[in-house]
Simulated scan of single mutants.
Amino acid sequence: MDFVKRHIVSPGKTPHLKTVETDESGPFKDKDAAKQFTAETVDKIRDLQYRMFVEQKQSLLVVLQAPDAAGKDGLIRKVLGQMNPQGCRTYPFKVPSSSERAHDFLWRIHKATPAAGMVSVFNRSHYEDVLVVRVEDLVPKSVWSKRYDIINHFEEGLMERGTKILKFYLHISPEEQLSRFKKRLENPDKHWKLNVGDYAARDKWKDYREAYEEVLDKCSTRDAPWFVIPADHKWYRDASVASIVHDTLVKMDPQMPPVDVDLDEVRQLYERELNQQRG
């Protein structure tokens, strides 16, 4: 299955999220098959990420957006967080601080974008400023409506310097979300995730869906596409994102840099010291 073609939002072809399946299982016969595929794909991602880190020419930005309980943390833990932490950073964007609010909305975002050779994973992102602020009426429409173009120009600038951008919307059904809320309530280890505001947001499900659809319509571009990932099955969510990240890194084709030392000389020095230790 070509997960890229299956889930990419092509410019001019914005899906109506209400009609997009949330419980897809793809080519996998069962959960175990999907988990095996994910594990094998993560190994390949790790190798390609190492090559990119050593190459020091390209970078990758992965943006995650979703309703609460759709699995951003789980996806990071099982897939994206498996990359070598030496070359990968995760940034959870919460409610802006007073200092952050005193700057433009991209100020805190720009500081977290990846340097050459690095991967940045955004757990929520700059898109909160055309989602939450819109639905919760935190700023006037005259303000947030201009931000789509600002975001597109911002991402164009990142791409100009060699950053590839992947944006994932984890698409969960309201029924599955409520089921996961129930599991959180029943598990003391998950109580820290409970938030009354998350339940209140369910009353605005339609408003958030419309906000996401406009994001997909205005900000899924040819070079920085959005992907709508069915997320009711955690194993399918992980497998599809892993596949798309892997395919992207393959196309980026990071190369190991040429060796700038005399290998024969290094071998001779090694053999000399080894012989001295034996003697």
Rank of each mutant, 00 (worst) to 15 (best):
G71E: 12
S125V: 11
P230I: 09
P92K: 07
P225G: 11
A116V: 03
L269D: 14
D137F: 01
L185V: 12
F105P: 05
A33T: 14
K35C: 12
L131N: 10
K183M: 13
S243K: 12
D217H: 12
E155W: 04
K72G: 03
R202W: 03
P96C: 12
Y208G: 05
P258F: 11
E100T: 08
S59H: 03
V266N: 00
Y127G: 01
L170C: 09
Y208V: 10
D129K: 04
V241H: 01
A231G: 05
Q49H: 12
F28K: 03
E176W: 04
P114K: 07
D198M: 11
R202G: 03
H246W: 11
D43W: 00
E271S: 06
A200F: 06
K218N: 08
L80N: 03
V130F: 02
G157L: 14
P225C: 11
T90S: 14
L64T: 05
A242C: 04
R89C: 06
K44S: 09
S120W: 02
P174V: 10
E55M: 03
H16L: 07
Y50G: 10
I45E: 05
K111V: 12
E155A: 08
V139S: 08
Q177K: 01
Q177I: 04
Y50H: 11
S173M: 11
A34I: 10
Y270E: 13
L106G: 07
E186N: 10
F154G: 01
P67T: 04
L178N: 03
Q82A: 10
F37Y: 15
Y236M: 10
T38A: 12
K251Q: 13
V261G: 02
M252H: 00
R272K: 13
V241K: 01
R101N: 14
V20G: 05
H110G: 10
P174M: 11
K190Y: 09
L48M: 09
